[in-house]
Design a protein around this nucleic acid. Structure first.
Lengths: 190, 190
DNA sequence: CACCCACTATACAGATCGGTATACCCTGGA
DNA sequence: TCCAGGGTATACCGATCTGTATAGTGGGTG
């Protein structure tokens, strides 16, 4: 990626996230990045493609961020599950004051044929898969159920954080996840 | 509200929800409603105001829908809490295939000074208040905590439903809410 | 009858949208 | 020294955006 393309993608990401995708024009992206529209269209080809790369780039950064947190976490399954919530709390504090960028993008992209659609659903499916996988290390039989519960708590916390409706929602979700895990341990002692 | 204004608001609501607010122009709203732009601006004054009334109207309908479900529910606090999830499940099946209209609108409206902002946050605060109030009938001391947990499960289920990432997320959230309530009853028998 | 009001029809203003074209500058490598 | 490629600047295209203006229709009420 050329330096100008990198600057453009960074500017586009910030603007798309803060103001919404449809509300941001390519002229504004070019101006904010210190890049001409010509360069934008030489590198990306279309605004649609800029949107796709914005979401993919953000997803990639998040997964790397999360992987780092999981690597640093204690190896116990419970600790690894809670580390996901810790990673989210640190991530949103720095990058996501307005909630999940995938959920917000989904609000503006209705057509499933849109090239950004698989990026959005892919990230969510991946998160559900991760929660289910981690849940399986605790309760193989109840992995699907526990994974979905963790997913709901996590998504709910993200949207609650974005709306600013209650304080520290991710920390609250983490506590509830912890309680669900200990309650499960009570059912299956050993 | 005049008949033309009603038709316009219905059309605007449908279009805003399905395609996003910024993606829908007033010409399209007028055409879909069988109304001229003149009438639109005579009745509403601006597109911004149409957005505000769209959200307020939808909120009003949802609260009436929910109130009806709560009225028909058993008087026991637990049953009333679960009735909220039942109402949501019935509501989204009919009106919200793409998730919560307030959350989706929030993705497009970033400025807290936007006149639609208090409608969005107001609905969410009201829902949190309702959950907290219902929680208080079960555990007065833990009302805030339980209310927030129910809120997270509910919001998570709504967004999961909108993304179509897992089947029947609201029913799953209802089951988790039920488990949280029975676990609480175990802690505080009687 | 006159009056008012909701509404329709059409045209337009001013701005911005995504996207394209022409022309020039600068730097690094063969 | 030449040249290609990344980048810049500017102007433009057709379409669409929100919002306004003018003119006229139909029904109900005093």
């Amino acid at each position: 990626m050329t330096p100008a393309a990198r600057r453009a993608l960074d500017a586009a990401g910030r603007l798309f996230y803060e103001r919404g995708i449809h509300a941001v024009g390519v002229d504004l992206i070019a101006a904010e990045a210190g890049v001409t529209k010509k360069t934008l269209y030489d590198r990306f080809g279309s605004k649609e493609q800029i949107v796709v790369e914005y979401l993919a780039d953000r997803d990639e950064r998040w997964r790397a961020f999360l992987a780092e947190h999981l690597r640093a976490a204690a190896p116990a399954p419970k600790a690894r599950i809670l580390a996901v919530f810790d990673a989210s709390e640190a991530w949103v504090a720095e990058h996501s004051p307005k909630g999940c960028s995938m959920v917000n993008a989904h609000a503006e992209i209705s057509d499933p044929a849109h090239p950004a659609y698989p990026v959005i659903t892919g990230q969510k499916r991946w998160m559900l898969g991760l929660f289910t996988e981690l849940a399986g290390e605790i309760t193989p039989d109840g992995a699907a159920t526990l994974g979905r519960t963790l997913m709901l708590l996590h998504e709910g916390a993200l949207v609650a954080h974005g709306l600013g409706i209650l304080p520290d929602p991710i920390r609250h979700a983490r506590r509830q996840a912890e309680e669900a895990l200990t309650a499960l341990a009570g059912q299956r002692p050993g």
